[in-house]
Design a protein around this nucleic acid. Structure first.
Lengths: 354, 354
DNA sequence: TACCGCATAGAAAGCGCTTGCTACGGCTGT
DNA sequence: ACAGCCGTAGCAAGCGCTTTCTATGCGGTA
């Protein structure tokens, strides 16, 4: 039925062991023999049996990339970059070119699915796992994830965090690349304050997410620094990281306090929704209300007016995570690196009206 | 070192066979025995060895989803939807709940990587493969892909095409869900023509892509129908499916023919670039030039003016592909279904100036 | 010329799991 | 009361590959 190593061996008139060695290239094989084997492989159109090989070798070439929402370019960009670094050239042949298979797993942001995928990856004896994006802050879940990661690390899987804060016990992790969400959030709000805004609404992401909390904290730090306190809760509305949620939250914000002169959104997608809500209300941006986002996704420069936001080097971070996962790059000292966030001032923010 | 089935069996005082049967739940096991086994699994924190299991059972629970560009929401939305349908509830335990692992593979739109991933998936004895997005039209490559898919199908892998035209020999495919790119393209241009436009530029996608060709053909069919012919090549510029390319192509288009009153873009992302190029030139949309896109990605309704485009039910299509891949849904008659594309008229298109 | 060592190939023992077949009680039917 | 079944559990044979250890043949050296 299916062609096996033994079939190839028979055709090349060598032992299965020799075929295996040719394919893996980690043992001296005479050139003439290799030639013969390779021809047999081609002739028979042989494809290695992955499970059998992983079983015997006790490792696999799978690298899992976990993302919260694959439809969100924030994750897509990081995952794509990581995959670019991981995937070898690839020649479509049956030969195993030391190649890794990067696969992305969509957790939908739910803790259960995150754990499920981690287990599944553990089952497959994955070579590495990259977790992207903010973590859920539920202690029980974090403990479960940490335990799982520790077990993976024990089994030889390289664990890399990308855009996610380090674990409490970061020893089972090769490297943690964390975005400076707090700093970015702070600088963004400082920018608004420097323009003269005082009544600033905040459309936050889902509660219990590290990303959400850090960005919000940065915002509040900036507000506190100039003595604006007391109204935080009223001027903050939580929602999910999507456009619809941004729209709804902004409507609510304007209901609570029609006098706000600026809206800071959890991310660019949410900012898009906020923009729509503000316009539907008949207000102009930035004349009546300034809007700012976070992430600097590709479309942000193209909306009108262009969105003031905080640029996160998603591609670079993803690529680095990919290299870390494959061991192409040495981990940063202590296994922890903070990635800077850069303020991008554009047309959607302006001084409030007189 | 690692816990094996035998360890669990020993602890539960049963044979390995019984443990296996409890875990797979496809053989009668007395309730009390099952109980005991499950407890042992928990106690030992046992995780099934995927490769071993796949080897013995000659199947795996992996389902591969191939996408051209994971950073593009067009693919992200389809992949996410498919994954939603495929992934079971999942409880994070070691139990195999008949669960499938949906993994997405980023081909970057290159034929080689597409083939490489197909081989890798074949290696892993994937349960199903979903190919999304347009195919490259190189005959050699198409033959190679068809051959690969036939082999996969032979080995029991369910092959589903989503947003991709059927193969010449579609028998190895469970189902092909194709978007009506040609019809959508035609209706979009008909809309522009009905507004009175006659000088329409077209920013096309990469050559040798089915999607590109079909959309372009729809456009040209509409032009031909009203007798506008002869200028096709001059008013068409090819590029890749990204913003940057849309910007550059539009600049080129305006250089070739400053008199155009409308630009049709290969997709919404490209339309974004086109919009920017037009504005940088000091022209207004839609007063001076109308712009239209394709796909109706989430941001399209939020740009200003909102983008006239052709809506593709990406989520629904992806979800259906997921169901088809898992066998939850019966294939359409003949294994082929065409998915309608709906024209969405919005603010970015208007009659040309007097 | 006899011996040793190196380069290369083969034999065979698993890797951890699934599953067809067999074995064993107790219960039913007559 | 005995044959025959059904419901369960175990045995053991692989699944296709990797890898350790062993065997072989050759060239070089004394």
């Amino acid at each position: 039925m299916t062609v096996t190593l033994a079939d190839v061996a028979a055709r090349a008139r060598v032992s299965p062991a020799t075929v295996s060695r040719v394919l893996n290239g980690n043992y001296p094989v005479a050139a003439s023999t290799r030639e013969r084997v390779l021809r047999a492989v081609d002739d028979l159109d042989y494809v290695l049996n992955g499970p059998a090989s992983s079983l015997a070798a006790a490792t696999s070439d799978l690298i899992g990339i976990l993302v919260n929402d694959i439809a969100d370019p924030f994750f897509g960009i990081m995952a794509g970059a990581a995959q670019t670094e991981i995937g070898g050239p690839g020649d479509g042949s049956g030969r195993a070119g030391g190649e890794k298979l990067a696969i992305v797993c969509n957790t939908g942001g739910t803790p259960e699915r995150e754990l499920t995928y981690l287990t599944l990856l553990q089952r497959q004896r994955a070579a590495a796992v990259v977790l992207t994006g903010g973590a859920v802050e539920d202690p029980a879940h974090q403990a479960a994830v940490s335990a799982k990661l520790a077990k993976l690390a024990d089994a030889g899987t390289r664990v890399v965090l990308c855009g996610r804060p380090p674990l409490a016990d970061n020893t089972s992790v090769v490297a943690a690349l964390a975005f400076d969400n707090r700093g970015g959030g702070r600088r963004l709000t400082e920018h608004l304050l420097s323009l003269g805004h005082r009544d600033i609404g905040y459309v936050a992401g889902p509660v219990e997410r590290t990303t959400t909390r850090h960005r919000l904290e940065g915002h509040r730090d900036a507000m506190k620094a100039v003595g604006i306190v007391g109204d935080e809760d009223r001027l903050t509305v939580h929602g999910s990281y999507d456009r619809r949620s941004g729209y709804d939250a902004t409507v609510e914000l304007l209901r609570r306090e029609p006098g706000i002169t600026a809206v800071v959104a959890a991310n660019d997608t949410v900012a898009l929704g906020a923009t729509a809500a503000i316009r539907d209300r008949g207000l102009r941006i930035p004349e009546d209300i300034s809007v700012a986002g976070f992430d600097d996704l590709p479309f942000s420069v193209d909306v009108v007016p262009a969105l003031t936001t905080v640029r996160l080097p998603l591609f670079e971070a993803g690529a680095r995570a990919g290299r870390l996962a494959t061991g192409k790059e040495a981990p940063p000292p202590g296994g922890i690196a903070t990635i800077a966030a850069e303020l991008m001032v554009r047309g959607s923010t302006a001084p409030p009206r007189g």
